[in-house]
Simulated assay, not measured.
Amino acid sequence: MALSRNRRRDRSVDYWPGFVDALSTLLLAIMFLLTVFVVAQFILSREITGKDEVLNRLNSQIAELTQLLALEKGNKQDMEDQLASLQSSLAQSQSERTRLQELLTNGAGAADTANARVNGLTAELDAEKQVSERAMSQIELLNQQIAALRAQIAAVEQALQASEAKDRNSQVKIADLGKRLNVALAQRVQELNRYRSDFFGRLREILSDRQNIRIVGDRFVFQSEVLFPSGSETLNPAGQVELGKLAAALLDIAKEIPPEINWVLRVDGHTDNVPLSGTGRYRDNWELSSERAISVVKYLISQGVPANRLVAAGFGEYQPLVSGDTPEARAQNRRIELKLTER
Results as ranks from 00 to 15, higher is better:
Arg97Ser: 05
Gly304Glu: 03
Gln171Lys: 01
Ala248Met: 03
Lys179Trp: 00
Glu328Ala: 11
Glu53Val: 07
Leu90Cys: 04
Gln145Met: 07
Gln211Gly: 05
Ala70Phe: 02
Glu233Thr: 15
Pro320Lys: 12
Gly107Val: 13
Thr279Met: 04
Arg9Pro: 06
Ala184Cys: 11
Leu68His: 01
Gln332Met: 07
Arg9Asp: 00
Phe32Met: 08
Ile48Arg: 13
Glu72Gly: 06
Gly239Trp: 08
Ala329Phe: 00
Arg7His: 11
Glu133Ser: 13
Leu243Arg: 02
Asn212Asp: 15
Ala165Met: 08
Thr49Asn: 09
Phe42Val: 14
Ser4Lys: 08
Gly239Ile: 14
Leu103His: 03
Leu28Phe: 11
Ile215Leu: 04
Phe222Val: 14
Leu160Met: 15
Val131Asn: 13
Thr25Tyr: 03
Lys51Asp: 11
Val296Glu: 02
Asn236Lys: 15
Asn106Ile: 05
Arg117Leu: 12
Gln145His: 13
Asp218Ser: 09
Val311Lys: 03
Arg266Thr: 10
Thr35Gly: 13
Met1Cys: 12
Leu338Arg: 10
Val183Tyr: 00
Asp325Gly: 06
Gln61Asn: 15
Met79Cys: 02
Ala114Ser: 10
Ile30Ser: 07
Ala329Asp: 07
Asp21Ile: 10
Ile153Val: 15
Leu246Pro: 03
Leu86Trp: 01
Trp16Asp: 03
Ala110Tyr: 12
Gln77Ala: 12
Ser289Ile: 13
Val322Tyr: 03
Gln144Phe: 08
Ala114Glu: 07
Ala247Gly: 08
Ala40Asn: 14
Ala154Gln: 06
Leu28Gln: 11
Ala70Trp: 05
Ser88Cys: 06
Gly278Trp: 04
Val183Gln: 02
Leu3Gln: 12
Glu205Leu: 14
Pro327Glu: 01
Glu64Lys: 06
Leu227Thr: 14
Val264Asp: 01
Pro275Met: 04
Phe222Glu: 10
Ala110Cys: 10
Lys339Tyr: 09
Lys245Trp: 03
Glu205Asn: 15
Gln303Asn: 02
Leu27Glu: 10
Leu71Val: 05
Arg210Met: 13
Leu340Gly: 06
Asp252Pro: 00
Ala247Thr: 06
Ser197Asp: 11
Arg334Asp: 11
Gly109Phe: 04
Ile153Met: 09
Arg283Ala: 12
Ser163Phe: 04
Thr113Cys: 03
Phe315Arg: 12
Ile215Gln: 09
Ala116Glu: 06
Gly324Glu: 03
Gln138Tyr: 01
Phe200Tyr: 13
Gly231Lys: 13
Asn169Leu: 13
Val189Glu: 06
Gln67Leu: 09
Gly18Phe: 01
